[in-house]
Computed example of a mutant assay.
Amino acid sequence: MTEENFIPKAYCKTIENGSFSWASPSNIALVKYWGKKDHQIPENPSISFTLDYCKTATTLSFSKKETSEDYAFEIFLDGEKKEDFKPKINTFFKRIEVYLPFLKTYQFKIETSNSFPHSSGIASSASGMSALALCLVSLDNAMSTVKMSQDEFNQKASFLSRLGSGSACRSIEGDLVVWGEHAQINGSSNLFGIKYEHEVHPVFKKFQDTILLVDKGEKQVSSTVGHNLMHDHPFAKRRFEQAHDNISKLMSAFKTGDINTFIDIVESEALTLHAMMMTSMPYFILMKPNTLEIINKIWAYRANSESKICFTLDAGANVHVLYPEREKESALKFIKHELIEHCQNEHYITDQIGFGAKAIIN
């Protein structure tokens, strides 16, 4: 499959006006994507859990306009107009126009809201860009001569999402999604995410994710800057090889239910991501003292019990605490008694594995 597959052949009709609405979730990478080539192509494959509660709901309203010289759109978050969001959407539209040639012929109104507080420090780019892409593909499909199958629809939405925010391509489906070519995963692609179809032991079903909000401020380093630091990184080549190896090991752990190997890989991946940032030039420390306090308490709790609780991190200070559903009661008790004191204003979000985006019927 190539990019040309996503260019529409012809449209059978013009739709004067209307709207589409989608809710799309965030995701948390278990094997991290860090470093990209041109056109949002990942340097290494990644695999993620799709989340359930943390999601973005977007309504795209559209009406035909008289001229088609430029993009015309307004963006609202929770009913408030957001001019500062426009440059990112404008860049997104430029990247995807060849695949959605109608973009300049409509006036768009993008209304979006998150199930989590905008100031929480939880990245909304994956859920937001995927929700918008799904709305746009819905319009594309409605006008197309040949309707897409569900798989084709999901692939195009994932493909377009990637061009807005790399990790957004992993938010279309669930519960486990792979993005990037991997020798052992048939159909894996650098162009879009695919649902992980290999065998998964029941212990990994309904996994829980409690997100500890250590720092709810703006990210110290943007994702784009962070990824670009990998271009001349002295350890980049070995890191990309490590990601391939870790996915292979995770595949075996998923099949057999080897949760100890799962823990080792997921925590190592989280710390490797931060190690790459600490050893780049310029260098950054994205964890906070309370991030380390939480990690050490998780390790101590696991060492002194039979718990299979573990952690992962994004490129920031917040901690995703992962644990099997069977431990939900005891894990939440531990989190509330021992960990939330290290969160900003004791704020945290409880979530679990989800199964992808859903259309909202207006």
Rank of each mutant, 00 (worst) to 15 (best):
K237N: 10
H347I: 13
A275T: 08
S248W: 02
I309G: 00
F254K: 06
H347N: 14
V266N: 04
I340S: 05
G257S: 10
H233N: 10
E306M: 12
G257K: 12
V266K: 07
V266Q: 03
Y283F: 12
L286Y: 08
H347D: 14
D264M: 13
I295N: 05
M251G: 01
A275V: 10
S280D: 05
A303Q: 07
G316D: 00
I295P: 02
E341T: 15
E267W: 11
M281G: 09
K297P: 04
K288R: 14
A270R: 00
A270W: 11
M277A: 07
Y323G: 00
E241W: 10
I335Q: 06
H320A: 05
E329H: 14
V321F: 07
T261L: 03
M277G: 02
I263H: 09
F334H: 04
K297A: 00
N296T: 03
D314N: 08
E341H: 11
F235G: 07
M281I: 11
F254C: 02
N345S: 14
S330E: 15
R326K: 14
K308C: 11
L273T: 00
F311D: 02
F311H: 01
I298H: 10
L322I: 02
V266E: 06
T256K: 12
A317C: 05
S305T: 10
Y323S: 12
T350P: 00
S248Q: 08
T312Q: 01
A331N: 08
F284R: 00
I298V: 07
T312A: 03
F240M: 15
T312R: 00
P234T: 07
D314V: 00
Y301K: 12
P282Y: 07
E293N: 15
K288Y: 12
K237A: 14
M281Q: 15
N260P: 12
I335G: 05
V319F: 01
E341Q: 14
I265S: 01
A300C: 04
N304E: 14
R238N: 15
I265T: 09
L273P: 03
P324C: 06
M281R: 15
E241A: 14
F284Q: 05
T256E: 02
I285D: 10
P324K: 08
M251R: 13
A317L: 01
R238A: 15
I285A: 10
E269R: 08
N345G: 05
H342K: 06
R239T: 00
R238K: 14
M276F: 04
K237V: 09
Y323T: 03
I295Y: 10
N246L: 10
V321G: 03
D258P: 10
N290C: 07
W299M: 13
E267N: 13
I298A: 07
K308A: 05
S248H: 08
Y323W: 07
Y283R: 10
T272E: 13
N246R: 09
M278R: 15
I349V: 11
Q344M: 11
E327L: 11
M287T: 02
H342I: 07
E269Q: 00
M277F: 07
I340P: 04
T261I: 09
H233R: 12
I265P: 04
A303F: 04
K333F: 12
K333T: 15
L250M: 08
E327P: 01
A315Q: 05
H347M: 14
Q344K: 12
A275M: 12
N296C: 09
F240P: 06
I309E: 08
K297L: 02
E241H: 11
